[in-house]
Design a binder for these strands. Structure first.
Length: 730
DNA sequence: AGAAATCCTCTCCGG
DNA sequence: GAGGATTTCT
């Protein structure tokens, strides 16, 4: 181990060796953050300061957790991390809750709802409360509730604070939604962070036990923690006070899910005796790439100023790719990968292609396939979000937890078994009257005076469920899933349908089965199904068995955090895409941090790519190139002709009739608020010809955005926002 | 009851 | 250009 320390810089070594007391490491991009965490864990284990199970390491992605565990094993020996608590906040606390949740009125076989499940439950609740989805969008309600949970605001408090119409409605929904979750014995993602706090408050003995148990706590990406995570960590470390956090304020990109930068900024207020280390030396990127990164991030006003220093050479300039449309863009990227592979003897694994939104991956995928370039998409439309997989999982969930009415509703008539909406309504009513779960009601439906035909169908269904429950009791996850397919005919039906789509679904179900088999081979134990469901609910991406590990990586910029690649393409660098529509300066600053993250992933070569037109919502849209491109010194960017931008400066592309600013003044760039930004239903406007009116609806976006307006004097008109030159009246 | 067709909205990032 | 809700057809 002492030899291993030789591989660390002085500051890194100090951070690793300061094992006792609170420590914060401010780690710039590429400064060896992961290295510090893994060495620290290895050191704690090796020096016998702590047994692996006394160490709790929290990350934000499963990928990061797996990687860290592997690296510690490499540093020490195979099996050295046995017992080590390492994982995402969500997965670690799901595990802990399985042990203790009975103390706060749930049972340990609780279901975990993903955001789609929770959205449909919210819809349901809104319906029951008679809140029209026209007056408040379920999405809005969902995000308000989620945000409240992340901020550790419970329904009663939320209700008191509800200041506007939306919040007032959301408060009601929040209350009933919470109740329904409990009736279903289910937790949503946010509950995985919230319930531990409730548990600690209501049963302090559990907290004390865990405080004693976890002697060392490490948290990665601390700048992305929200209030609930902050509180959990703070409480858990209160006994031993060995809390070690690593983060970088410049890479904070999750404020939309409640991440609070002040957690990292105020760390030393909570722990005045904390040791703080700063890692500013970058071991990853060329000096040119860092110059670009520093130049961009320095335009943000809210930040801890720090310039990263490279210990590498200048390297190549950045390259700008300009394309006619997104297909051509993908083509250029493909061609470039081809040519660099030949001219520089690169491997496919050296390349990564980033994009702002998942929707952009499709074109890239198609084109790479045409070019016969092997690729892998990370965290795309998850395997687990596919309909057939969700159906199978709903069955598994329900077998495990028959209070889970959401799952029950999903499977009760799938595959079709003659239990239609009407019947379900009646049964629901029946269960309400009896004060039982829906499934209880189904089991005693004989005494409910239902039609014989329905009773038959219900009997067959509950027989099926009970049979599968028995299998679950005795057998492995694999056995359960196997008999599930067998008994329901899920696989058979898809095969018989024999369309390309149904066969693909068939294959997905087979894939799930082989995952279950693999899981069953490794986990022999009574709680197999629970653990399998845990893994599945919290996995963002499936770890597919790879035939080869030599492929181009495709992912969103968010997914790229923490990773690095020799050659990086950032695509879709257009206004309103990257940066995405943002109306406030704070949002723009977050987009800029996101861009900073993207830039700093590159080790040797960075391509910036934008397209003059792109399909959005099914229609081609003219695009303006991203302001971020202009925030980089033009003399380190080369265009396709080989000259730098500063040499070949020509008036910028005009599109949308909006002239582009050729050179951006230094200092924070402000986004001009478009004249059409405040347009929405109910807003009063003034038109040069038609006079005053009220917006009825807004449709489309970008340059095809239209509004329907009722004018006082001329009635309803549909106008193109772009040309209408509307004035918004107060 | 259930499949098929149609209309509609909403459109980011993820555990 | 997908998913949900709603309507229409068998």
């Amino acid at each position: 181990m002492s030899d291993i320390f030789q591989q660390l810089s002085g500051v890194q070594r100090d951070a690793v060796q300061t094992t006792e007391g609170p420590v914060m490491v401010l780690a710039g991009a590429g400064s060896g953050k992961t290295r510090v965490i893994t060495y620290r864990i290895a050191n704690l284990i090796e020096s016998r300061n702590a047994a692996p199970h006394q160490i709790l390491a929290l990350t934000f992605t499963n990928k990061a957790a797996n990687e860290m565990r592997q690296r510690v094993e490499q540093l020490l020996y195979q099996g050295s991390t046995r017992g080590l608590w390492i994982g995402t906040f969500h997965s670690v606390f799901a595990r802990i809750l399985r042990n203790y949740i009975h103390l706060i009125g749930y049972t340990s076989n609780f279901s975990i709802y993903d955001s789609d499940d929770s959205k449909s439950l919210i819809r349901q609740v809104m319906k029951d409360l008679g809140i029209s989805t026209d007056s408040v969008a379920p999405n809005t309600v969902q995000s308000l509730i989620s945000r409240a949970k992340n901020d550790f605001v419970l329904p009663a408090q939320f209700h008191r604070d509800a200041a506007d119409y939306n919040r007032g409605k959301a408060a009601k929904v929040y209350e009933v939604y919470t109740q329904r979750l409990k009736e279903n014995n289910a937790l949503d993602f946010d509950d995985l962070l919230l319930k531990p706090l409730e548990l600690f408050r209501e049963v302090p003995a559990v907290l004390e036990q865990l405080q004693e148990y976890f002697r060392y706590i490490l948290i990665d990406e601390y700048q992305d923690t929200n209030k609930a995570q902050y509180l959990v960590a703070k409480q858990l470390c209160a006994r031993h006070r060995n809390i070690f956090v690593v983060g970088d304020d410049a890479q904070s990109i999750y404020s939309w899910r409640g991440a609070d930068i002040s957690n990292i900024l105020n760390f030393t207020d909570d722990y005045p005796d904390a040791k703080v280390f700063k890692l500013l030396e970058n071991y990853r990127s060329t000096r040119t790439i860092l110059r670009a990164a520093n130049g961009v991030i320095s335009r943000n006003s809210r930040q801890i100023r720090k310039d990263l220093v490279s210990n590498k050479g200048d390297g190549e300039p950045l390259s700008l790719l300009e394309s006619f449309n997104e297909k051509r863009e993908a083509d250029k990227v493909g061609e470039m990968i081809r040519s660099l592979k030949l001219s520089q003897q690169r491997e496919y694994r050296d390349f990564a292609i980033f994009y702002r939104t998942n929707a952009q991956s499709r074109v890239l995928e198609d084109i790479l396939r045409m070019h016969r370039i092997p690729y892998r998409i990370f965290g795309s439309i998850s395997f687990y979000k596919r309909k057939e997989i969700k159906d199978a999982i709903a069955y598994l969930r329900f077998i495990q937890n028959d209070q889970d009415t959401e799952s029950l509703l999903r499977i009760i008539n799938f595959p079709p078994r003659k239990i239609g909406d009407k019947s379900i309504q009646q049964l629901t009513e029946y269960s309400r009257v009896r004060g039982t779960s829906l499934y209880e009601a189904i089991k005693v439906a004989e005494s409910g005076g239902f039609q014989a035909r329905l009773l038959n169908a219900l009997g067959a269904f509950s027989d099926l469920v009970e049979k599968l429950k028995l299998v679950a009791l005795e057998g492995s996850v694999y056995d359960v899933l196997n008999s599930l397919y067998e008994e329901t005919g899920l696989l058979r039906l898809l095969k018989e349908e024999n369309t390309a789509e149904s066969l693909a679904r068939h294959e997905n179900l087979q894939e799930l089965l082989s995952m279950a088999r693999e899981f069953s081979d490794h986990h022999q134990g009574a709680n197999g199904l629970c653990e399998f469901m845990n893994d599945i609910a919290l996995a963002s991406d499936r770890e597919a068995a790879e035939e080869t590990d030599n492929y181009v990586s495709l992912m969103t910029v968010h997914a790229a955090k923490g990773l690095e690649f020799p050659v990086v393409f950032i695509t879709g660098l257009e206004e309103r895409l990257f940066p995405l529509n943002c109306f406030e300066n704070e949002e723009l600053e977050e987009e800029r941090r996101l861009f900073y993250v993207a830039v700093t992933r590159a080790r040797e070569k960075l391509f910036l790519s934008w397209s003059k037109s792109r399909y959005l919502y099914g229609q081609p849209q003219a695009c303006i190139r991203s302001m971020f491109i202009d925030e980089i010194d033009s003399d380190i960017i080369e265009n396709e002709g080989g000259s730098t931008l500063s040499e070949s400066r020509v008036p910028r592309q005009m599109s949308n009739g909006r002239p582009c600013v050729p050179q951006v003044p230094p200092g924070p760039t402000k986004r001009p608020a478009g004249p059409q930004d405040g347009l929405k239903k109910g807003v009063r406007v003034q038109h040069a010809m038609f006079g005053p009116g009220v917006v009825r609806r807004v449709q489309g976006s970008g340059s095809s955005r239209k509004v329907v307006i009722t004018f006082r004097n001329s009635g309803d008109k549909t106008l193109m926002v772009e040309y209408a030159n509307l004035k918004i009246m107060p």
